[in-house]
Write a protein that binds this DNA or RNA. Structure first.
Lengths: 345, 345
DNA sequence: ATCACAGCTGGGAGCGCTCCCACGCGACGA
DNA sequence: TCGTCGCGTGGGAGCGCTCCCAGCTGTGAT
């Protein structure tokens, strides 16, 4: 019945209709006020806002989403494996940044952990049906087709990091090359002459960048990179431990190591201790990530800090821009990294 | 026009209507199949399911939410301060658990970080208007009125931890008393005779529980707790450091310390080193949380593990049950803790 | 053969919002 | 004085679903 339309919402909360009645205007006008349309006179706007305040009206999201064909929500997609490895500060830093940026937009953050290929599939489908306005992708692997899939479907996407140097999908990355350079320059600046590095897996772009930065810094200082001083790891502590042993065997005289992750630095530190070498006395150590572990290592680990919260914010801004304009500009941001000096170097 | 109703959805995706047409049934029937109503014949059900598969139909969440007056989403509310302190493994562990439990329910997880009282207010309002089906609250402080507010409004809530021993709001906690007992028993079992403790802030229930467990274990072993052996901290590393110094000054002969957090254990370890006492030779150390820091400490720290992922799962199950039945049973779960033995004790 | 009743089914009536078309009303030029 | 314009405004139509009531069938009892 038409009468019902004038009543309270089902859960006893006021509806647009009631606000309109109270303010003595039509539904359309209230809607305009809520959505900040300029086509409302100042008088009317004030009256409506008063009515909204009086009634404590809050728009019904589902109704709004249905009518306007948008969801006012974005998804942050995280491969579950990452939540273990990068738990801190990676994960929470990004979340904090995203959340901060969303705080005054009344857009909701949906968190989706992806465990299995099946769940991945399911999410793609979910996203495809415009159930979210946009997607934030974290730590995407080199062979992951999801970013492109989503982009092709016309869903706004922003990734954290990139899969290759010519990444086409909009992304926000940090300056891995620059960070590595910073680390090596610092080591060189402290008078170290034989600087080695322990790398991440070579099929990860981020790992390659860090090696590139290492080599770059060496060349800039007039030295040719020496393959014997480059040992491969996989970001894990164990791999750092093994790599360090290998390095010392190959080049007993080395006096500095740049590790592409804090975890590997921890492994390396253990190996050095086993070998009776002191840090930073015999060997200076620098890590990457500036995790809590770095701060609490003994000696505290010098490390390259990535602006995680800043990346979260930047990603969100980029995504919102994409959602807003649907313009063809595909943002590609690279945020600077920073060296945090501690006792290990 | 009625004709339009038979067409595709706005974004080119199939609607219920189309599935119905394809399956040669009515809208109601398709809806029944989707929602698992038993009042559909097997033949019809199969036909509908086939049509759904053919069309790749995915229900429109907003439409569903609007019509059914539920949102198919729950919120996980985290005070932002906590994301820094407990980043790992607390935060990510819970999220993993929640997410796992939600995986096959098609309920969405909304993550809300709360920074300011204003945001807190805003969230209450948001929740109040049935924009989420339920709320998960993490690390609530003793004086926080939000849980009660939400509960009074009839919004299903489950907290992680409790504010006091007679907590009325449904919650899932871990056995802090038992965990502390485990730690102290272990220390005693290793032949330590003078076991001290560094506590958390006494206005936090969880901290009081851990002290209680400490005393309990002592009494069970036939010793009276000695106030000189109890030093107050605030869970931070710095406070652990200060407390350790105080403890050694008061009781130089102590040979074991149970710290109510790993962070404080790290501080205590530093103090011991400054005082020239070895771990575990002179003093055995046990922490609480089993964070990554504990594993990487030197020597690796024995610590009480809280089943974070399990708590996340349990909370979610409890919340879903509450949402489902709206029965008057207010779940109060206490999950067991576990001692992880390492080199420090 | 008739009636009652259950088991399935179709589709109308909304849910609370946005979109958009049409309308009223002053100001203005002819 | 009579259009004409454009700003504000009201409200119909509809978003895709669920709920629910009526109706349609087939069965067993009478």
């Amino acid at each position: 019945m038409a009468v019902t339309r004038r009543g309270m919402g089902r859960d006893g909360r006021p509806t647009l209709e009631q606000v309109a009645a109270r303010a003595g205007v039509g539904r359309g006008t209230v809607s305009r006020v809520i959505n900040g349309s300029p086509r409302v006179s100042e008088r009317t706007r004030a009256a409506v806002q008063q009515a909204i305040a009086d009634l404590g009206y809050v728009p019904h999201r589902a109704a709004r989403a249905l009518a306007a064909n948008r969801s006012d929500a974005i998804a942050l997609v995280v491969p579950e494996a990452e939540t273990r490895l990068f738990a801190e500060p990676y994960f929470s830093g990004i979340i904090r940044g995203v959340s901060a940026e969303l705080a005054d937009t009344d857009i909701q953050l949906l968190l989706t952990l992806i465990r299995t290929p099946k769940e991945r599939q399911r999410f793609s489908q979910y996203a495809a049906s415009h159930r979210v306005d946009g997607v934030l992708l974290v730590s995407v692997h080199g062979d992951d087709p999801m970013p492109d899939q989503l982009a092709e479907m016309g869903i706004p996407v922003v990734m954290n990091g990139r899969r290759s140097s010519d990444e086409m999908v909009p992304h926000v990355d940090c300056d891995n090359v620059g960070g590595a350079q910073l680390a090596v320059e610092h080591l060189l600046g402290r008078g170290r002459s034989t600087v080695a590095t322990i790398t991440g897996p070579s099929d990860m772009y981020v790992a390659r960048c860090r090696v590139d930065g290492y080599k770059e810094a060496l060349r800039a200082a007039g030295r040719e990179p020496d393959e014997d001083l480059i040992a491969k790891g996989d970001f894990s502590e164990e791999s750092g431990h093994a790599a360090m042993h290998k390095l010392i065997k190959r080049r007993p005289e080395l006096d500095a190591v740049f590790c592409a992750s804090d975890l590997m630095a921890i492994g390396a530190r253990r190996a050095l201790r086993e070998l009776g070498r002191s840090v930073p006395g015999d060997v200076a150590l620098v890590g990457f990530d500036d995790s809590a572990l770095a701060r609490h290592m003994d000696p505290a680990l010098t490390s390259v800090r990535q602006p995680m919260e800043g990346m979260g914010r930047a990603m969100t801004r980029a995504l919102l821009a994409e959602i807003g304009d649907s313009g063809p500009d595909r943002p590609r941001l690279v945020l600077p990294t920073e060296l945090v000096r501690r006792a290990s170097s």
